[in-house]
Design a protein around this nucleic acid. Structure first.
Lengths: 206, 206
DNA sequence: GGTTTTGTGATACGAACGTACCATGACGTT
DNA sequence: AACGTCATGGTACGTTCGTATCACAAAACC
């Protein structure tokens, strides 16, 4: 039966199976056999397209990062239609919160990978873990634009604010993920903080 | 040699060994044999004092939470000597950042447990994961005190601010942990945000 | 058309892991 | 002094995991 096959495509299919089963049962619990079953192929095939489990995991992380990047930029683009920079900033930050199954899986797995990266140099070297974060640059730029349009409160440092907001979003996401906090309360917290950065009339009463 | 032995004490020793080896090699990689070796006892003993690995992990989390709670309140108490509420708040938030080995291990393992809790109801039910967080209550109270002393900028919601700050601290901690960010830059970000909440003269130039 | 490469299946192997079982010396109790 | 329970050691069992090996059919190439 061996037709010639597109390796990249096949690898993607298998990695998607990895992401699915890891999302269901936790990254620590996934084995090559289960990934194979989920992808509907034999164990041998998983070995064939990825030689080792480590390479499979690496590729899975790449896929995850890529998909998530697309998701975020799609949301930001969608928000960039009419309103101001604030809508885009909010879209960027909210996209990372685990509000639906997709983002929940993403957050879960990304955190799993981050934990593994602490003891695994190969994972730690991955751009997605290692990078000064494209997201931070993008958010900083958005904040600068808002600043030049005089939309922000004075005394805001765009770069520091961007780093803080992203960290907050990530932290809230973890809280939601483990059930400490509802998605709604997370968005409330985030909105409140944006309100305190953006220059608006609706100050919250104490 | 079997003197009568204090079970609680023995269990703590073994759990400490668990925390040490998990801190070194990652929670996912620790086995009962290695814990036994680290604790200087036989595998049989680990089984004797904890019947199952799951119970060992559960107890390890309890120990971790307890130790960390002590650490944080010790720091807050130390900061509560002379200055204002801000020093205590800063101490509370900074204590969670992975700046030294101890807090680094804590953050690492706590995140590991949180990830496991996503797929493990028994872990998710643990108070430390599950609770509306004593830290949030404490921080909220500190913010309220500062507020009543008119130390805060207007428009700050103590509870939302507390939740946001803790999430930010956690997020920054993860960044430090995986090497995305230096401890110094994390404290800088945190300080900047506190500056924007507290009423002080030293506004940062834009 | 024969040969080499490529895709795929089945299965075996060695290691590690959690757990269970058996044995035995020391202590507390009576 | 005898007995039972406590603490501990050693080791075996069954499973699972990642990886390696053997086998073979379909296509590609010359």
């Amino acid at each position: 039966m061996p037709k010639r096959v597109d390796h990249a495509e096949r690898r993607t299919e298998i990695a998607e199976a990895l992401v699915r089963v890891a999302g269901r049962r936790g990254l620590h619990a996934v084995g090559m056999r289960e990934v194979a079953a989920e992808a509907g192929v034999s164990l041998r095939l998983v070995q064939y397209y990825f030689q080792t489990k480590e390479k499979l995991l690496l590729f899975g992380l790449e896929l995850l990062a890529e998909r998530f990047g697309e998701r975020v930029s799609a949301r930001v683009r969608a928000a960039g239609d009419a309103p101001g920079p604030r809508a885009m900033i909010e879209a960027l930050l909210m996209a990372a919160l685990p509000t639906d199954d997709e983002s929940r899986t993403f957050h879960h797995l990304y955190t799993s990978y981050a934990v593994l990266a602490v003891n695994d140099p190969a994972l730690a070297a991955q751009p997605f873990i290692k990078n000064p974060d494209a997201a931070e640059d993008a958010l900083t730029e958005l904040l600068r634009q808002a600043q030049e349009a005089a939309l922000l409160e004075p005394g805001v440092d765009a770069r520091l604010e961007a780093a803080g907001l992203l960290a907050m979003s990530a932290g809230l996401g973890t809280g939601v993920l483990v059930g400490q906090r509802s998605p709604e309360s997370a968005t409330t917290v985030l909105s409140h903080h944006l309100n305190r950065i953006f220059r608006t009339g609706d100050a919250v009463r104490t």
